[in-house]
Amino acid sequence: MAKIITADEAAAMVSDGDTILVGGFLAVGSPEAICDALVSSNVKNLTLICNDTGWPERGVGKLIINKQFKKVIASHLGTNKETGRQMSEGELEVELNPQGTLIERIRAGGVGLGGFYTPTGVGTPVAEGKETRVINGREMLLEMPLRGKFAFIKAFVGDKHGNLRYQATGRNFNPEIALAADIVIAEVDHLVDFMDPDDVVTPGVLVDYIVRRDI
């Protein structure tokens, strides 16, 4: 059974210097109540693994504004100018990954793979310093797995066993992130007693804690 906690209790588990993975795509499908609680807790020197750095007023973007990260691993920063400012002034380390490479690195980290070879990024700045190999006649880059201490994900429906279902394009990075962290905390819009097993996208055994948005 997943334990039901508040967003503040979720944020209080995070310590300075931790690596967190956060679901969402430009804050769609992001655990916004947990992000807000992390801003209030003011925990610092975090490493963020997320598709993007959201918007200044939404999602993980608020933590950027509050200068809570020392490093960000993401595919896109364009919607939050503060990320670019902190990066160019040397306040924040940023590692840009192609989106497909980023999600596959997270997937590899979650499913026990030691990395993978991809054609994406060959001949571009992404290839710098990476091992290459020709596979089936095509040059590929070796990309390494990613994991973190906490996964903060967002689902539309959860049940008391931790099973999760997403809605529409709110699914995005969330299912892969749920496998790639030591402690998984899901923010859900609706909590039910149990779900039709066929509807479950993320198996409940992965989810340690649930933060409800419906009370």
Binding site: D52, H76, G78, P98, G100, T101, V126
Partner: peptide, 10 residues
Amino acid sequence: LVPGMGGAMD
């Protein structure tokens, strides 16, 4: 201008 590549490279 360094907004990131998003999905463009893939």
